[in-house]
Every structure is written in C-alpha cells, then in structure tokens.
Amino acid sequence: MATTTASATETHTEQAGRNRGQRVLGRVVLYVVATGFALFAALPFAWMVLTTFKADSDLYRPANNPFVYNDPPTWHNINLLWNDTSYPTFILNTLLVAVVVVLITIAVVVPAAYALTRLTGRWGESLGILIFLVYLVPPTLLFIPLTGVVADLGLQNSKWAMVLVYPTFTIPFCTWLLMGFFRGVPWEIEEQAMIDGYSRIQAIWKTVLPVSLPGILTVVIFSFTLSLHEFVYALAFVQSSDQKTVSVGVFTELIRGDVFFWQSLMAAAALVAFPVALLYNYFLDRFIAGFTLGAVKG
C-alpha cells in the first residue's frame, strides 16, 4: 500500500519535472524561432538604416567591418538626398497621387459598399465577391493595355495617369472591406432615421457613416498605403523624374548607370518604408479580415 503510493507520487513528480523541462525547452525554442523570423524579415531594413549614416570612406572599403561605424556616422547623405536629388519631388508626387486616389476611392466605394449590403438583396453578396475578385487581376496583366489607354487619354508620362488607374485596385478591395463594416451596422438605426423624417441618403449620411467611421478610416489608410506601394503602373506610365513617385523614382533616378549613391538610396527607402509600415501595421487586422473571405469568422 505504502509502496504503491510512494511510487505513484514518484512517477507523478517525475512527470511534473519532465513537463516542466519540456515547457522551458518549448519557451526557448519559441524565443529562438521568433527572433530568427524577426531577423530574417527586418534584415534589409536594418541594413538600410545602418548604411544611411555611413561616410563614403567607411562604406567603400571592402576590408572594413560593414556591421559597425568605422568612421563616425554622418547626416551628409540625407542632406544630399534632400537637397541634390528629386527626392522631395517624388515625395510630393507620391502624396498628391495617394491623396487624390483616397478621395476617389472613398467617393466610389462608400455608395457601392452600401448598395451591396443594403439595397441589392441576395445577389449583392455575390456581386461583392465578384468585385473582390477584380482585385486579383494583377497590374502585370493590365499595365500594357493600360499604357495604351493612358496614352489615348493624353496622360502618358503624367502622374495623373496613376491617379486614374490606382483606383482599379483600391476600389475592389475597399468595397469588400467596407461591406464587412456596413454589415455590422444595425439596419434599425437608419430605418429609425428615415422614420424620424430623413431621406435615405440623409439617413446614411447621419447615421450609417458616423457609426462606420472606423471602417471608412480603414479604407482611407489602405487606399493610401496601397497607392504608396504601387510600382508596376508607375514604372510603365511615367518617365520624367518630375512626375515620378517614390517607389519608382528611387529605383530609377538615384541609380545613375553604374553609379550608386548607396547611402542616399537607402535613406530614401527607409524614410518612406517605416512610416508606411507603421500606418499599415496599425490597421492590419481589418485588412486581414477582408482577405480571409469569410472563411474565418471573427
């Protein structure tokens, strides 16, 4: 009797010890793997930042340890970027294009998403999925015919070509995204507003829109960041540096033949990449909710 109890306790503690050992091991593996992934993902960006502040004499000596500052770090490259290149123009163009695209997107997407959730009954949902599928038509399939269309419209080599074309990917995605938000707004509050003496459009304006403000903000952020990300159309449509946006301008203008202004190049990339990443990251969960196609509820 006593022995069985003893052995039972023994195996019990043994098991507990093993469990604890496993748990500690599990944690260690977890941290190692997490760190590994983070390093892999962030490496190019860390490298950008490191490079940005290097002096020429440091950077261009292959024997130097590239992971440290052998010469003191310098702001010189950022000054150069800001004062002697078209970078400020790229930034302005990028912002201009993005802001106008956001405005167009909102103006088109809000009524469309509303109609698909509220006014079109059963086939609204199917049509919504169809519109979302349009998002999957890649720029690389369309950029050649669109180059022709843009030329026909007299917009070749103009940033307005981008303003015109970017909504083709922001509209499908954001319509889908906003439909999710509108579905969550109780019908009754807009019906109440209509009872209270407002027309349907006024009811939307005064109840549905204020209540779905987070959704609209999400649409703003995503159409903004998607515009900032775009590369293919920008590359195909625009050739003069005064019309270029950052993602194309940096790549095509700051590399002159074989001459690379590496530090300024990296500064240019990092200066845009991080703010965009922060903005995007903040709204990512909503973005993902759109991507999961309702295969996941939540």
Partner: peptide, 20 residues
C-alpha cells in the same frame, strides 16, 4: 410614401438609439 412622409413615430424592439 417613404417613412419620413408618413408623419409617424416608431419605437423598435431594440430601441435603435443612435449610438454616436
């Protein structure tokens, strides 16, 4: 006639107060 032209008031089961 749309609701607004009917001069009626309605109270929903959920009350439908404007949350904002």
């Amino acid at each position: 006639l749309p609701p607004r032209a009917r001069q009626i008031a309605m109270v929903f089961q959920s009350y439908a107060l404007y949350p904002h």
